[in-house]
């Protein structure tokens, strides 16, 4: 039995497949000339070959169905993961906003504290100066109405609060500008995809299939990179971001 395998358009085909049909056609064409015994024998061969082909068809259909099912489930899984990634991204964005808000609040609190300290130092300094120079001050305003003197002192005392506010605003503006610049620099130098892969050790989905639908699967795969982030991973990322922010705040305070 020769097994010369021909291939047309990459579709492998064994000659046995067509051989069976050719034999049957020959049998039909020469039906009148074939003795009954030989006819029986030929039909037996045909039945045997037909049985084999039928088994083959059943097998290939079964294998094909399984592969189709596999591709379908792989695609579904990819879609689910893409949806999950979208949700995670949205969560991350929300957390980022929340985190930024917290950072802003902390910055404001820090600036307020700094402004109060400056004003307090200024007030103490002013108090000392006025105490030391009281006699000179009184001599300067000698003859003037005492109300003007007290009024000036009250003006100075009351003026501390708005001065503190102005000072606080200036410090906040300066701090915000610095943070914005830092953030811009970080965004330029950081590729978020790399960070996620590096920190979370994201596994890749391997699509084994190499049939016609492989392209479709791969396209889906490319369009929606296959990150598998669990809630634990997100929490880990959040903790890391918070740690880094707190560390930076600490450095700034120092």
């Amino acid at each position: 039995m020769s097994v010369e395998i021909s291939s047309t358009n990459n579709q492998p085909k064994l000659p046995k497949d067509t051989e069976t049909i050719n034999q049957l056609e020959n049998l039909i064409n020469n039906l009148d000339n074939i003795p009954p015994e030989e006819l029986k024998s030929q039909l037996q061969i045909f039945a045997k070959n037909h049985k084999k082909l039928l088994q083959e068809v059943k097998l290939l259909t079964s294998v094909g169905d399984r592969l189709q099912k596999k591709i379908k489930s792989a695609n579904e899984m990819l879609q689910e993961q893409a949806e999950e990634i979208r949700k995670i991204n949205k969560d991350l964005q929300d957390k980022n906003i929340e985190l930024q808000f917290t950072i802003d609040e902390l910055t404001k609190a820090k600036a307020g504290k700094r402004a109060t300290t400056i004003i307090l130092i200024f007030a103490i300094a002013l108090f000392i100066v006025t105490e030391v120079l009281e006699s000179t001050f009184e001599a300067f305003f000698k003859g003037a109405n005492m109300l003007i003197i007290y009024g000036f002192k009250v003006f100075l005392a009351v003026g501390f609060k708005p001065i503190e506010g102005l000072l606080e605003k200036a410090i906040i503006a300066k701090e915000m500008k610095r943070q914005r610049m830092e953030l811009e620099q970080q965004q330029k130098s950081i590729n978020p995809k790399e960070i996620i892969n590096k920190n979370l050790n994201v596994p890749k989905i391997e699509v084994k299939n190499k049939t016609n639908s492989e392209n479709l699967t791969n396209e889906t795969n490319n369009a929606n990179p296959s990150y598998e982030m669990t809630s634990e991973d997100i929490a880990k990322l959040e903790r890391k971001l918070k740690r880094e922010t707190m560390k930076k705040m600490g450095e700034n305070r120092e």
Partner: peptide, 17 residues
């Protein structure tokens, strides 16, 4: 096998034959 496609399935059957 870890995986085989449909045309391989045909040849596996041929080997078994």
């Amino acid at each position: 096998f870890d995986y085989f496609n449909t045309s391989s399935a045909k040849f596996i059957l041929e080997i078994l034959r």
